[in-house]
Every structure is written in C-alpha cells, then in structure tokens.
Nucleic acid binder design. Structure first.
Length: 157
DNA sequence: GCCAACGTTGGC
DNA sequence: GCCAACGTTGGC
C-alpha cells in the first residue's frame, strides 16, 4: 500500500464536501496533468491512503484522510462538452485522462497547516509539497513522513 | 493582486 | 528538437 497527498481548493471541493457525499465517495476528476495521470495509472492502487490538502485558501494544509477505493479509469468529464474539464482532443478509444475514486476516512480534529509542516522541515525533508515549485496536485508520501504527519495530527496513521 | 515556478503549445 | 510565449498554480 502507498501513501499520497492530494490537493483541492476548498472553495471548489473541500473535505467537508467529501464527507457530505453519498457514501462519502467522490470521483477525483479534472486532473489534467500528465505526471499525475501517470501516477494514477502506474502507482496508485485501490486501498492506498491519501491526505486531503486544502490549497489556495487562507490556511493551506492537511485537513484529513481518505482512501483510494478504485484503480484508475478514464475520467468521463474529458468527453463532456459541458464540463469545464472537457478535452476535445481526447478520444474515447484512447482516453487521455484518468481518475480514481476516493472515500472519506476522517477529518483531523486539528488540521496540520502548511506552516506547521514547515516547522518540521527536518523530519519532513523531501516531502514534495514543501519543495519549492512543486505544483503537482497529487504527490507521493513516504511511510516515514506519513507517520510524522500522523503524529502532528494527533492520530495514529 | 503579485510573482516565482513550472507545464504546455506551437512556430521554426 | 529547440525555445519563446503563454497559461496555470498557489503561497503570500
């Protein structure tokens, strides 16, 4: 099993939105980045766990935990002309973009803010989200970093 | 709203 | 295949 960090802008889709979904499940659609597409396809597997990161907001950071409940499959929004994620160049015979479905696990009682992560930069050295210029919306998390973040969140991960 | 950093596009 | 121009991300 692998660990991940997945970003979302809370104004668009927050961890509370995920918790409020039927069965607390959501297709993680709209990813239009090849590196992330390849991670979905080659590395992320059903049963993996992911931290839910709120970005582009007043207090960016980790707000909770979710589980990857499917392997990657084609993102239907790429074929929907009414979707903001529509990609006219992608053809159903050869889908360009993938998604995974995620399910809510828990919201942290206290979020682990980006500023807190930075305060623990020594322990978290190499965590992608702390590295300058990392804009990927999905990044891997090592088991050691995962454990540290669990401690900072006050939960056993 | 600024701006650094990065990804993508497209002309050549 | 190079690289300039442009668009996007995301913290501040």
């Amino acid at each position: 099993m692998s660990y991940w960090l997945m970003k979302s802008e809370p104004d668009v889709f927050s961890i509370d939105d995920l918790a409020a979904r039927p069965h607390q499940i959501e297709p993680w659609n709209g990813v239009r980045n090849y590196q992330v597409r390849n991670m979905f396809r080659d590395q992320m597997k059903q049963g993996d766990l992911a931290l839910f990161y709120h970005s582009s907001c007043a207090e960016p950071g980790l707000y909770g935990l979710m589980k990857i409940i499917t392997d990657a499959y084609p993102d239907p929004t790429q074929f929907d002309p009414d979707s903001e994620y529509y990609d006219a160049a992608s053809r159903p015979e050869e889908p360009r973009w993938l998604l995974v479905e995620v399910q809510f696990v828990q919201k942290f009682a206290q979020p682990v803010l980006l500023s807190t992560l930075r305060e623990h930069a020594d322990e978290l050295a190499g965590l992608r989200v702390l590295e300058k210029g990392t804009r990927l919306s999905v990044t891997p998390v090592t088991p050691a970093h995962w454990k540290t973040i669990g401690r900072l969140a006050g939960v056993a991960l």
